[in-house]
Write a protein that binds this DNA or RNA. Structure first.
Lengths: 192, 192
DNA sequence: GACAATGCGGAGACGGTCTCCATATATTGA
DNA sequence: TCAATATATGGAGACCGTCTCCGCATTGTC
């Protein structure tokens, strides 16, 4: 949970302590209540005032990005690994599944990330943090197209949207991982 | 916009007038702001107090169901027409497209309907109103399976979930109808 | 015209978001 | 060690949306 950030000035010791505590509590709250968890409540549970929370994290997305920071690293690793996999089709299939599972970390995550990418704000912290998701998808789709294993009339952004939508549906229905796999397979097959 | 309802007692004349006006205004507001439009604001625009709105429509879903009432009828017609179509595969494909388009009537509609079906409340007015969506999907999937044109390991509820998720994604990205068709095709193909 | 029965409005409680600034704490350098 | 300064804090409160309650108004009926 080392949510340390390379900022202009290092934070004052007490500020860093608060920052870390807030991120830790936020991760728990998001896991429990979904991405819509009350921010004032998170501040309270972290033992700080609302003002403190909002100075460190001006928007909900900023806090969400911080809470997601570590696990997003793992996803970037997966992207690197899969992009050198020999079988481009199988690599894409696995990527889709890994992504879909990842988007179930918190209830509402596909919504939050979808909004961050759809909204105009290009410098949204959540968007920045989730860049590996986009770039990974783009790269793996590119390779799959190059290998001729998926149809040409589908864009990488479509694949990203489909992954998000599958995760959204699975969350809505509280699906088992087994069911998620079934939904993912429909999309994977449909891309062929 | 004949949102008349067969109730135990006919409404008093003024009450019926208010009811109709609220539904009319609500349809506009939902179209403009999505399913999350402010209810107090709808009441205000309809020239009634919040209390009046909440007595007629105890929940947001109840109002949404009333606003959707008419167009849902058209959908039921489509279901009837398609369920006697000779080509069961083509019928299912068209149904998926019709449904997906319908779910874009209001921003947030897939969310609202998804929650109504996922939530425990079996007598939710939105759920009741949207029954044709579920039964139509079930029937068309049944016929397609019988004809052997779609894979056996997919449930009707999976198809319903996939349709909703496509509509969700299309809304998020503000997709053109053309793009929606592309996404729908991926799912249709994936079911084969 | 009078009297139920029915329906209405809007004040206000509640909970969430987010801001502002007087106060408190950490850090620095003499 | 102890100012002096830079930095960070918390919580009161403005704002907005939801939803309820109940004194008052309107309608339908005899």
């Amino acid at each position: 949970m080392g949510a340390d950030v390379a900022e202009r000035r290092p934070l004052r010791a007490d500020a860093q302590r608060n920052y870390d505590k807030i991120v830790k509590v936020a991760a728990e709250a998001f896991a429990e209540k979904g991405t819509g968890a009350s921010l004032d409540d998170i501040a309270c549970r972290a033992g700080v005032g609302p003002g403190t929370l909002y100075r460190h994290f001006p928007t909900r997305d900023a806090l969400l990005a911080a809470a997601l920071h570590d696990s997003l690293g793992e996803l970037a690793d997966a992207a690197r690994r899969l992009s050198v996999e020999a079988d481009a089709g199988a690599a894409l299939d696995e990527w889709i599944l890994v992504m879909a599972r990842h988007l179930r970390t918190y209830a509402g995550l596909p919504d939050s990330i979808g909004a961050a990418f759809a909204g105009g704000e290009a410098d949204s912290p959540l968007r920045t943090t989730c860049m590996p998701m986009q770039s990974g998808t783009r790269e793996l789709v590119r390779r799959a197209k190059e290998a001729g294993v998926i149809r040409a009339d589908v864009e990488a952004s479509d694949v990203a949207a489909l992954i998000g939508s599958i995760a959204w549906a699975a969350e809505r229905r509280n699906d088992s991982d087994e069911t998620l796999v079934r939904l993912v397979r429909v999309v994977s097959e449909g891309l062929r």
